[in-house]
Amino acid sequence: MNTQNITITLSETKKEKPQSDQLEFGQVFTDHMFMMDYTEELGWHDPRIVPYQPITLDPASMIFHYGQSVFEGLKAYLTEDERILLFRPEKNFQRLNKSNDRLCIPEIDEELALTALKQLIETDREWIPTAEGTSLYIRPFVISTEPYLGVAPSGSYKFIMILSPVGSYYKEGIHPVKIAVETQFVRAVNGGTGTAKTGGNYASSLKAQEVSGKMGYSQVLWLDGVEKKYIEEVGSMNVFFKINGEIITPALNGSILQGVTRTSIIELLKYWNIPVTERRISMEEVRQAHKNGTLEEAFGTGTAAVISPIGEFFWQDEKLLINEGKTGELSKKLYDTLTGIQRGKLEDPLDWVVEVTKASSLSTVR
């Protein structure tokens, strides 16, 4: 493990904290942040927790011009007995390094990153909201900072983690959403950056989202970028279908992001001995299953929502209503189980939860 000392500089002024029942997503940020720098001479160095603040970059910094950046998203939860729990954080830092590799960004030390995250959360512990369904959202990200207008990997970077108290994704309970199947734009193709969590993937998705939103749909269902036939993701989430008792999710094919929630759903279904298959699935197969009455449920999976039931697809001028537009029994069970484990209310049979303990000795407060 990297044993670099993490310095902690505490903020001299504290922000006003919002009411837990008035939280939106990603609009309020805590008093502190984590930062670490990379140069070719020193590698990753100077890990530190500092007061939350703007960062100053040269206008020629490569992030502004070539988009060399990656990010992650996970949450911390406060249990009824005031323990702080993280859900599989090691998976997020493993995926961050996979994204780093695809974007030619130097690998970070995953153990050091997790240690730093625990210390940052402990430093801002009082920011973790306590209302039902709330949590502390965590955004680690890496940006390229070298001032250079040549197209090449940057020689310097910043690794930053910020925290944001967020409200429940479902303010009035878990409800199915309506999804438009996207046939014009594509999210990614095999060989591109679809398997990396990088900002460009999300920027390129905005146009399709804007168009579907004007039609009254919450998200788009992405099809493959070659034949526009096979299902890949829904919005910024992975997607699952329950067809005739079997759970099917698109196989990782080089353009689909491997979600931590996706992996957990598959492992949980196998633990329950419910048949689950990762394979290629076409929109036509889904339509035929709807036509013959075997399409029982569909849902998206991701950090923010955990489970997002799908009540309707719109494809080729046809509306496919699923389970009468109601939340399916399996969707609800998966949601209740995962959130129960995340919040320490249910048994953790697969050993997913990591508890944040008091700051370790690898820190210096100044």
Rank of each mutant, 00 (worst) to 15 (best):
Leu330Ile: 08
Gln316Ala: 11
Glu329Asp: 14
Glu324Asp: 13
Leu338Ser: 08
Asp317Ile: 12
Ser363Tyr: 15
Leu321Lys: 13
Gln342Glu: 13
Gln316Asn: 15
Gly328Cys: 13
Thr337Pro: 02
Glu324Met: 09
Trp352Phe: 04
Thr364Met: 06
Val356Thr: 05
Lys332Asp: 11
Glu329Thr: 15
Gly311Ser: 08
Gln316Val: 08
Glu329Phe: 07
Asp336His: 13
Glu312Leu: 15
Ala359His: 01
Thr364Trp: 07
Gly325Thr: 01
Phe313Ala: 06
Ser331His: 11
Glu318His: 11
Lys333Val: 06
Ile341Asn: 02
Ile322Met: 09
Glu318Phe: 10
Ser361Asp: 09
Arg343Trp: 02
Gly328Pro: 15
Asp348Phe: 02
Lys345Cys: 05
Ser360Phe: 05
Lys358Val: 05
Lys326Asn: 14
Leu320His: 05
Leu350Asn: 03
Ser361Tyr: 08
Lys345His: 09
Leu346Pro: 12
Thr339Pro: 09
Gln316Tyr: 12
Glu329Lys: 13
Arg343Leu: 12
Trp352Thr: 01
Asp348Pro: 03
Lys358Cys: 11
Trp352Lys: 00
Thr357Leu: 00
Tyr335Asp: 04
Glu312Asp: 12
Leu346Asp: 08
Gln316Lys: 15
Thr357His: 02
Ala359Gly: 04
Trp315Cys: 13
Gln342Leu: 00
Gly328Phe: 09
Lys345Ser: 06
Leu330Met: 12
Phe314Lys: 13
Leu321Tyr: 09
Glu324Pro: 04
Leu350Gly: 03
Trp352Leu: 08
Leu338Met: 11
Lys333Thr: 15
Leu338Gly: 11
Gln342Lys: 10
Ser363Arg: 15
Leu334Glu: 03
Lys333Phe: 05
Thr364Leu: 12
Glu355Trp: 01
Ser361Thr: 09
Thr337Ala: 02
Leu330Val: 10
Ile322Cys: 09
Ala359Ser: 07
Leu321His: 09
Lys319Leu: 14
Leu334Ser: 00
Leu321Thr: 10
Gly325Lys: 05
Leu346Val: 03
Val354Tyr: 04
Asn323Val: 11
Glu312Ala: 13
Gly340Leu: 05
Ser331Pro: 07
Trp352His: 01
Glu324Val: 05
Gln316Trp: 14
Trp352Tyr: 00
Leu330Tyr: 06
Ile322Thr: 10
Asn323Leu: 06
Gly311Leu: 03
Lys333Trp: 08
Glu324Phe: 08
Val353Ile: 04
Leu330Asp: 04
Asp351Leu: 09
Thr337Trp: 01
Gly325Val: 02
